[in-house]
Protein backbone atom coordinates (compact mmCIF):
# COMPACT_ATOMS: atom_id res chain seq x y z
CA UNK A 1 0.00 0.00 0.00
CA UNK A 2 1.39 3.42 -0.85
CA UNK A 3 1.32 6.27 1.56
CA UNK A 4 -1.26 8.00 -0.48
CA UNK A 5 -3.59 5.04 -0.41
CA UNK A 6 -3.01 4.77 3.26
CA UNK A 7 -3.93 8.34 3.84
CA UNK A 8 -6.97 8.26 1.62
CA UNK A 9 -8.23 5.08 3.19
CA UNK A 10 -7.88 6.46 6.64
CA UNK A 11 -9.31 9.78 5.69
CA UNK A 12 -12.38 8.02 4.45
CA UNK A 13 -12.83 5.98 7.60
CA UNK A 14 -12.23 9.12 9.57
CA UNK A 15 -14.93 10.97 7.72
CA UNK A 16 -17.27 8.09 8.32
CA UNK A 17 -16.55 8.09 12.02
CA UNK A 18 -16.91 11.83 12.25
CA UNK A 19 -20.07 11.93 10.18
CA UNK A 20 -21.80 9.78 12.76
CA UNK A 21 -21.13 12.28 15.44
CA UNK A 22 -20.79 15.69 13.95
CA UNK A 23 -22.24 15.59 10.46
CA UNK A 24 -20.09 15.15 7.40
CA UNK A 25 -19.87 18.77 6.42
CA UNK A 26 -18.37 19.81 9.66
CA UNK A 27 -15.95 16.92 9.47
CA UNK A 28 -14.60 17.92 6.10
CA UNK A 29 -14.14 21.46 7.34
CA UNK A 30 -11.99 20.09 10.08
CA UNK A 31 -9.89 18.01 7.78
CA UNK A 32 -9.46 20.84 5.31
CA UNK A 33 -8.54 22.96 8.28
CA UNK A 34 -7.81 26.62 8.29
CA UNK A 35 -4.21 25.89 9.19
CA UNK A 36 -3.15 25.51 5.58
CA UNK A 37 -4.34 28.89 4.40
CA UNK A 38 -2.85 30.57 7.43
CA UNK A 39 0.43 28.91 6.63
CA UNK A 40 0.46 30.09 3.05
CA UNK A 41 -0.11 33.61 4.19
CA UNK A 42 2.69 33.37 6.69
CA UNK A 43 5.36 32.20 4.30
CA UNK A 44 4.68 34.89 1.77
CA UNK A 45 4.56 37.59 4.37
CA UNK A 46 7.06 40.21 3.32
CA UNK A 47 6.92 41.67 6.82
CA UNK A 48 9.08 38.73 7.78
CA UNK A 49 11.80 39.90 5.47
CA UNK A 50 12.91 42.63 7.87
CA UNK A 51 16.38 42.45 9.30
CA UNK A 52 16.25 41.58 12.99
CA UNK A 53 19.59 40.80 14.57
CA UNK A 54 21.86 40.56 11.56
CA UNK A 55 23.27 43.19 9.24
CA UNK A 56 22.49 42.93 5.55
CA UNK A 57 25.96 41.55 4.91
CA UNK A 58 25.64 38.94 7.66
CA UNK A 59 22.27 37.89 6.30
CA UNK A 60 23.83 37.41 2.85
CA UNK A 61 26.55 35.25 4.35
CA UNK A 62 23.90 33.25 6.19
CA UNK A 63 21.80 32.89 3.03
CA UNK A 64 24.75 31.46 1.11
CA UNK A 65 25.44 29.09 3.96
CA UNK A 66 21.80 27.99 4.15
CA UNK A 67 21.87 27.32 0.42
CA UNK A 68 24.90 25.08 0.85
CA UNK A 69 23.61 23.32 3.97
CA UNK A 70 20.25 22.44 2.40
CA UNK A 71 20.50 23.01 -1.36
CA UNK A 72 17.72 22.80 -3.90
CA UNK A 73 17.60 19.30 -5.37
CA UNK A 74 14.50 17.72 -6.86
CA UNK A 75 12.82 19.40 -3.90
CA UNK A 76 13.15 23.00 -2.77
CA UNK A 77 16.06 23.99 -0.56
CA UNK A 78 16.48 26.26 2.45
CA UNK A 79 16.58 29.48 0.42
CA UNK A 80 13.14 28.92 -1.05
CA UNK A 81 11.70 28.72 2.44
CA UNK A 82 13.33 32.01 3.47
CA UNK A 83 15.22 30.00 6.04
CA UNK A 84 17.86 32.70 6.49
CA UNK A 85 15.15 35.20 7.42
CA UNK A 86 13.74 32.67 9.83
CA UNK A 87 17.11 32.14 11.48
CA UNK A 88 17.70 35.88 11.84
CA UNK A 89 14.28 36.28 13.43
CA UNK A 90 14.84 33.29 15.69
CA UNK A 91 18.24 34.56 16.83
CA UNK A 92 16.75 37.92 17.70
CA UNK A 93 13.77 36.67 19.68
CA UNK A 94 14.64 33.26 21.10
CA UNK A 95 18.33 33.50 21.99
CA UNK A 96 20.18 35.43 24.68
CA UNK A 97 22.83 38.02 23.94
CA UNK A 98 25.74 35.61 24.40
CA UNK A 99 24.31 33.22 21.85
CA UNK A 100 23.54 36.08 19.52
CA UNK A 101 27.15 37.20 19.74
CA UNK A 102 28.32 33.67 18.92
CA UNK A 103 26.22 33.78 15.76
CA UNK A 104 27.32 37.18 14.54
CA UNK A 105 30.98 36.56 15.36
CA UNK A 106 31.14 33.38 13.30
CA UNK A 107 29.29 34.98 10.39
CA UNK A 108 31.85 37.81 10.42
CA UNK A 109 34.73 35.41 10.65
CA UNK A 110 33.52 33.35 7.71
CA UNK A 111 33.32 36.55 5.71
CA UNK A 112 36.75 37.75 6.81
CA UNK A 113 38.36 34.43 5.95
CA UNK A 114 36.71 34.53 2.52
CA UNK A 115 37.95 38.05 1.94
CA UNK A 116 41.47 37.02 2.90
CA UNK A 117 41.40 33.95 0.67
CA UNK A 118 39.56 35.21 -2.38
CA UNK A 119 39.46 38.97 -2.02
CA UNK A 120 35.66 38.71 -2.14
CA UNK A 121 32.84 38.48 0.34
CA UNK A 122 31.72 34.98 1.22
CA UNK A 123 28.41 35.44 -0.56
CA UNK A 124 30.20 36.52 -3.73
CA UNK A 125 32.42 33.44 -3.83
CA UNK A 126 32.24 30.42 -6.13
CA UNK A 127 30.18 27.56 -4.73
CA UNK A 128 33.15 25.22 -4.68
CA UNK A 129 35.17 27.69 -2.65
CA UNK A 130 32.31 28.32 -0.26
CA UNK A 131 31.84 24.61 0.23
CA UNK A 132 35.55 24.09 0.90
CA UNK A 133 35.51 26.89 3.45
CA UNK A 134 32.50 25.52 5.33
CA UNK A 135 33.93 22.01 5.23
CA UNK A 136 37.14 23.30 6.78
CA UNK A 137 35.07 25.11 9.39
CA UNK A 138 33.06 22.03 10.29
CA UNK A 139 36.29 19.98 10.56
CA UNK A 140 38.04 22.67 12.65
CA UNK A 141 40.81 23.14 10.11
CA UNK A 142 43.04 26.19 10.10
CA UNK A 143 42.15 29.07 10.58
CA UNK A 144 39.08 27.84 12.45
CA UNK A 145 38.97 26.96 16.13
CA UNK A 146 36.87 24.49 18.12
CA UNK A 147 34.68 27.38 19.19
CA UNK A 148 34.13 28.33 15.54
CA UNK A 149 33.06 24.80 14.71
CA UNK A 150 30.65 24.81 17.62
CA UNK A 151 29.23 28.15 16.51
CA UNK A 152 28.80 26.83 12.97
CA UNK A 153 26.96 23.77 14.23
CA UNK A 154 24.57 25.97 16.14
CA UNK A 155 23.76 27.88 12.95
CA UNK A 156 23.52 24.68 10.96
CA UNK A 157 21.11 23.21 13.50
CA UNK A 158 19.01 26.36 13.26
CA UNK A 159 18.89 26.17 9.48
CA UNK A 160 17.91 22.51 9.63
CA UNK A 161 15.29 23.23 12.28
CA UNK A 162 13.86 26.15 10.32
CA UNK A 163 13.74 24.12 7.13
CA UNK A 164 12.23 20.92 8.48
CA UNK A 165 9.59 22.83 10.43
CA UNK A 166 8.71 25.01 7.43
CA UNK A 167 5.73 24.14 5.31
CA UNK A 168 7.94 23.01 2.44
CA UNK A 169 10.09 20.89 4.70
CA UNK A 170 7.19 19.30 6.51
CA UNK A 171 5.00 18.62 3.51
CA UNK A 172 7.45 18.01 0.65
CA UNK A 173 10.57 16.55 2.24
CA UNK A 174 8.85 14.64 5.00
CA UNK A 175 5.71 12.51 5.14
CA UNK A 176 2.96 14.86 6.25
CA UNK A 177 -0.43 13.73 7.48
CA UNK A 178 -2.34 16.15 9.68
CA UNK A 179 -5.04 13.65 10.60
CA UNK A 180 -3.82 10.04 10.33
CA UNK A 181 -7.16 8.77 11.63
CA UNK A 182 -5.72 5.55 13.00
CA UNK A 183 -2.59 3.93 14.33
CA UNK A 184 -0.67 0.93 13.08
CA UNK A 185 2.26 -0.29 15.09
CA UNK A 186 3.96 -1.82 12.08
CA UNK A 187 3.74 -0.88 8.42
CA UNK A 188 6.31 -1.60 5.71
CA UNK A 189 8.76 1.27 5.60
CA UNK A 190 8.45 1.27 1.82
CA UNK A 191 4.81 2.32 2.14
CA UNK A 192 5.89 5.60 3.71
CA UNK A 193 9.35 6.03 2.16
CA UNK A 194 10.45 9.02 4.21
CA UNK A 195 10.56 10.28 7.77
CA UNK A 196 7.41 11.70 9.31
CA UNK A 197 7.12 15.40 9.84
CA UNK A 198 6.51 17.22 13.09
CA UNK A 199 4.17 15.98 15.73
CA UNK A 200 5.33 14.79 19.07
CA UNK A 201 5.64 11.19 18.01
CA UNK A 202 5.61 8.52 20.68
Amino acid sequence: MTTQNNVILNRRSLLKGLGVVLGAQFASQLVGGSGLSVAMAFQQDSALRQLQLLSERQLKTLASMADLIIPQTDTPGALETDCHWFVDNQLKHCFDSDEQAVATVILNKIDTVALGQWGKAFYQGEQAGQLALLTALEATEDPFTQADTKAFKMLKALVVFGFFTSKVGMTQLLAYDPVPGGFKGSVPYASVGKAYSGGYPF
Partner: peptide, 20 residues
Protein backbone atom coordinates in the same frame (compact mmCIF):
# COMPACT_ATOMS: atom_id res chain seq x y z
CA UNK B 1 13.09 11.54 12.75
CA UNK B 2 14.80 14.45 11.05
CA UNK B 3 16.12 15.67 14.40
CA UNK B 4 18.71 12.88 14.40
CA UNK B 5 22.44 13.62 14.43
CA UNK B 6 22.03 16.97 12.67
CA UNK B 7 25.36 18.05 13.97
CA UNK B 8 27.27 15.08 12.59
CA UNK B 9 26.05 14.75 9.04
CA UNK B 10 28.01 17.36 7.11
CA UNK B 11 26.18 19.67 4.74
CA UNK B 12 24.56 19.60 1.32
CA UNK B 13 22.34 17.28 -0.65
CA UNK B 14 23.46 14.28 1.38
CA UNK B 15 22.51 15.90 4.64
CA UNK B 16 19.17 16.88 3.18
CA UNK B 17 18.46 13.36 1.93
CA UNK B 18 19.75 11.81 5.16
CA UNK B 19 17.48 13.89 7.35
CA UNK B 20 14.49 13.09 5.18
Amino acid sequence: GWQKDIREMGIGAELKAGLS
